[in-house]
Amino acid sequence: MPDPVLELRGVIKEFGEAVVTRVLHGIDMRIERGEFVAMIGPSGSGKSTVLNLVGLLDRPTAGEVWVLGERSDRLDDDGLTQLRARSLGFVFQFHHLIGALSAGENVMMALAADQPRLTREMRRRSLEALTEVGLADRVDEDPRRLSGGQQQRVAIARALVRRPPLVLADEPTGNLDTRTAEEIFTLMRRVNKEQGIAFLIVTHDPRIAERCDRVVEIVDGRIVDGRIVDGPPR
């Protein structure tokens, strides 16, 4: 049996106190080590909610979320924070770099998040991660002065620097032009192949979705399609 980095079992999520809205109606999903998975679905279908649950930023109302063999609902806030630091990398649509820090420091913060002190080793590994995304010469740059594509590459370096088993990407190419989007996708795919890091990519872009190993489609809080895409598009 393959080794899942992520598993959802019958996950239900409801919001609201007086008026309860059920957003997810029992989601079952597995992501194996090194898988490259796209999650698609119309706006309001529940994709972001799934991503928050998987990202350990939120807890399910019912059901189980397993990340690296740990059940999120059995952990307290600090436990979730630690598990997150250990096992997950995040890439967001609007890159979300920290303006007060340089590009290199942004990457370094992912390493320092659960450590008391900054070390030379962290600096070295941050530079290495930036080199991998082709931005070694921008290590001291203010991220607000970088182009959109460069910012997104810094964000990918930040997500990868800890070599997490799973990277969650929320519309990583959403606000990039086609050519840059292609660059970013290629970069993620390369990292996935070379380092065996699994990706869960939420996207609206069918061209991206169809080049993933597998597409999970969510409609109205239910998974409607778990088809596996082999190789090049059909």
Binding site: H96, I98, D114
Partner: peptide, 14 residues
């Protein structure tokens, strides 16, 4: 607040 959210997502404790 967004940046704080990011730091928290990256694994910084409260």
């Amino acid at each position: 607040s967004r940046e704080i959210g990011i730091l928290r997502a990256m694994g910084m404790s409260r």
